[in-house]
């Protein structure tokens, strides 16, 4: 069996704000093995980035509180010292951030920033060697004329080129865990395909484990081995790629899959979307967080449904919904597709 890299157990992250305590992450459990790509999808604002950044120790601060556990190769990350984290970041876990502009320094040349990162972890590498390596990485992620463009400042790059520079930087230390937070949204589909190919190579050859946060279900279908679906701070469903796409168990997942638009199909006049607003994470609904928007809710939903296996034939397919599996399978079909949408025309 492949080596277990990450083990996250009932992770909780809350922030104190003027309006009250925001429970940004409220019960996230998952594992990541070597050589697998785990996609995290879910509602905007559901805690995907906070979860990822917490693994890197980047959400620590006077207003933040943590509970649960997150272990990297058996070592607890939540309580690791800042010094240990310095070593872990970049070399053990690297992250491609959602907004590249704020994670690149505006006053340093892109190439120098990559060189800096390489040399911070290995002083023996000469500047020239590190620069050559940086250029090679930039070429690998599709930055044209990398040697010349390594001398550019971040503001001279387009949105997509900055994103590729970030990816080059994350790959520079061959980390065992790579967390990519929306790495391809700023890229056109041809470059996207190139980056996805790069991610697949990384997974096959260097034996990394990859967490891929994205809203693009096409990308998920292309590269994920397993998928986590998040809603309002919680994992509401988890399973293999095919389980999530072809036998989804949670009504929020149904809504998500039902909202997808496809280039090769005629679009409906109005795009289907899940009615209602996402809940406040300060005063979240009691019980199932999806309750106020769920057309199937019943009495039991006022209790928090645990994340557990409910499909008899699939012990690793977990979800947080009280409905009976057979009941779900009949309810989720709407007009021949999966969805929960009352199509407002």
């Amino acid at each position: 069996m492949a080596e277990r890299l990450l083990e996250v157990e009932d992770l909780q992250v809350s922030f104190a704000t003027e309006d009250g305590v925001v429970r940004a992450v409220d019960g996230v459990t998952f594992t990541l093995d070597r050589g697998e790509v785990l996609a995290i999808v879910g509602e905007s604002g559901s805690g995907k980035s906070v979860t990822s950044m917490t693994l890197m120790g980047l959400t620590r601060g006077p207003n933040a509180r943590f509970a649960g556990s997150a272990k990297l190769k058996g070592k607890e990350l939540l309580t690791a010292s800042e010094e240990d984290l310095q070593h872990i970041r970049g070399a053990e876990i690297a992250m491609i951030f959602q907004d590249p502009i704020s994670s690149l320094s505006p006053v340093h040349r892109i190439g120098d920033q990559i060189v800096e990162q390489i040399r911070a972890h290995d002083k023996k590498v000469s500047k020239g060697e590190a620069f050559d390596h940086a250029v090679e990485l930039m070429e690998r992620v599709g930055i044209p004329h990398a040697r010349a463009r390594a001398r550019a400042f971040p503001h001279e790059f387009s949105g997509g080129m900055r994103q590729r520079a970030m990816i080059a930087m994350a790959l520079s230390l061959s980390p065992s865990v790579l967390i990519a937070d929306e790495p391809t949204t700023a890229l056109d589909v041809t470059i996207q395909a190139q980056i996805l190919a790069e991610v697949k190579t990384l997974k096959e050859h260097s034996d990394s484990g990859i967490i891929f946060v994205t809203h693009d279900l096409g990308v998920v279908a292309d590269i994920a081995d397993r998928v986590i679906v998040m809603y309002a701070g919680r994992v509401v469903e988890q399973g293999t790629l095919d389980e999530i796409f072809y036998d989804p168990q949670h009504p929020y997942t149904w809504g998500l899959l039902g909202s997808v638009t496809r280039m090769d199909r005629d679009p409906p006049k109005r795009l289907p979307s899940i009615p209602g607003l996402p809940p406040s994470l300060i005063r979240a609904p009691r019980g199932c967080h999806f309750r106020p928007r769920c057309p199937h809710e019943f009495e039991r939903c006022a209790e928090v449904p645990p994340l557990e296996a409910r499909v008899a034939e699939a012990p690793d397919h977990l979800d947080r919904c009280w409905l009976e599996v057979e009941d779900k399978r009949t309810r989720r079909e709407i007009e021949g597709r999966i969805g929960l949408v009352r199509d407002a025309a």
């Binding site: 999808v41 879910g42 509602e43 905007s44 959602q98 929306e182 949204t185 700023a186 809203h215 279900l217 809504g255 998500l256 909202s259 997808v260 638009t261 109005r270 795009l271 289907p272 979307s273 899940i274």
Partner: peptide, 13 residues
């Protein structure tokens, strides 16, 4: 680009 498909649909509508 940074929105989940359901909220994306909402903004587009």
């Amino acid at each position: 680009s940074a929105l989940d498909v359901s909220i994306q649909a909402q903004v587009i509508n």
